[in-house]
């Protein structure tokens, strides 16, 4: 491990020292500086204030700032740890760290649980899963009758809800995911391993010297 010191600098509100962030996350200092290049692009796309607003998040995901999507909004809300309606750089890095290929599986399972626990009750309820299925169908061309949706829910809960209380608790979720690892596929972003290659300009903007 190197020894770092940061040069004094002027940054937008919400900026956090890469050295401090590296000690809290799976990322190296260089990777965090590369992520800052990405963050600057996203956070200046609609309102140039150094913070990611929901419209900017949607624009980055869908190339459309007005496209409403239940899941993208849930991801945004989970990234927005301070719940002030915007994502600052520290929140961006800490949340993305969960998606790193080297992040603990337990963190990924926990993040997905929070994502699907729409009402933040500590349980994934059958009604929530139905709401998510309907939202998914509305964004695709797939059409399923209510009977088919109920059959899918029956099958899913028969497998996941082992104590039969019509809701999935954290432990049931962990066991279910371990039996169905493909459910965690989108919780890992291979890009995060090559982030310094994807954003090489971080080198020119680096404020941290390895001494």
């Amino acid at each position: 491990m190197g020894c770092f010191h940061s040069k004094p600098s002027q940054h937008a509100a919400g900026y956090e020292d890469p050295v401090a962030l590296a000690s809290d996350t799976t990322f190296s200092v260089s990777e965090i500086e590369a992520l800052y290049e990405l963050f600057k692009k996203i956070s200046s796309s609609v309102i140039d204030d150094g913070l990611i607003h929901k419209e900017e998040f949607r624009l980055a995901l869908f190339k459309n700032s007005k496209k409403e999507n239940l899941f993208a909004d849930r991801v945004f809300d989970l990234f927005d740890v301070k719940r002030n309606g915007v994502i600052d750089f520290g929140e961006f890095v800490r949340s993305l760290s969960v998606f790193h290929p080297n992040a603990p599986l337990e963190d990924k399972i926990d993040f997905a649980f929070q994502l699907y626990d729409l009402r933040r009750t500590g349980f994934i309820e059958r009604e929530e899963v139905k709401q998510m299925l309907i939202a998914l169908l509305s964004e695709s061309d797939m059409k399923l009758s209510d009977d088919v949706i109920e059959t899918i829910l029956d099958k899913t809960f028969a497998e996941a809800d082992t104590n039969n209380d019509s809701r999935i608790d954290k432990e049931e979720w962990q066991n279910f995911v371990l039996r169905n690892p493909s459910l965690m596929k989108n919780m890992t972003l291979p890009y995060l391993k090559d982030i310094t290659t994807a954003f090489p300009s971080f080198v020119f903007n680096s404020e941290v010297e390895d001494v």
Partner: peptide, 24 residues
Amino acid sequence: NPMNAFELISTSQGLDLSALFEEK
């Protein structure tokens, strides 16, 4: 042969954050 609900849900475009890394 119905799929499991979460398999379907996990295909949502809103959950695919790799789009964040596409060239802007």
